[in-house]
């Protein structure tokens, strides 16, 4: 007879947006659901079951990962950044500001994933052009904007960040 009771839970400790959090998770729980349902940060969205859409993108030790594709227990002991961590001291991140200024979002569902992927891009690359941005977000689907204003926003954020030192 197959075991039908819930699996034993494991304590998972993570640092998320600079805050130390710990909670129980089933071994099979995906990081996306751990972040959303257990830690209550619902800015990270789930839009597919196949690691295709990128709405769930978060930064794991600074690297963009689709949080529906790793287990919560694999993230134990690591540092996670989500969209909720972008704003600092009431100041929007330059990417958030640029998305707003350039109509880089419509329904807003893909936006958190887009922001996280491009945050990592702008941290890792000093000089980006249109093609670089498009390649970077090729794992993040948007059904509303046709990507035009997302790309524009990222390029503008980069130049603002450079000007801002």
């Amino acid at each position: 007879m197959e075991q039908t009771v819930a699996n034993d839970r494991i304590m998972v400790h993570v640092t998320i947006n600079g805050e130390s959090r710990q909670a129980l998770a089933e071994p099979r729980t995906l990081l996306a659901y751990f972040i959303r349902d257990t830690l209550g940060l619902t800015g990270t969205h789930v839009g597919c079951d196949t690691t295709s859409c990128g709405a769930c993108t978060v930064l794991l030790d600074g690297i963009p990962v689709k949080s529906c594709t790793i287990l919560a227990v694999q993230a134990a002991g690591h540092e996670i950044e989500t969209v909720e961590g972008l704003e600092h001291n009431g100041q929007l991140h330059p990417l958030q500001q640029a998305f707003w200024d350039n109509h880089g979002l419509q329904c807003g569902f893909c936006t958190p994933g887009m922001l996280m992927t491009t945050t990592a891009l702008l941290r890792s690359q000093d000089d980006v052009n249109d093609d670089d941005v498009r390649r970077a977000i090729s794992g993040n689907l948007c059904r509303c904007t046709g990507y035009v204003n997302i790309v524009k926003a990222v390029l503008e954020a980069k130049s603002r960040m450079r000007e801002g030192g």
Partner: peptide, 16 residues
């Protein structure tokens, strides 16, 4: 857009 400040902060309130 007036709706954007909540979306860019991940503070939209979608069904799930």
């Amino acid at each position: 857009r007036k709706e954007d400040p909540r979306f860019i902060r991940g503070q939209g309130r979608y069904l799930d």
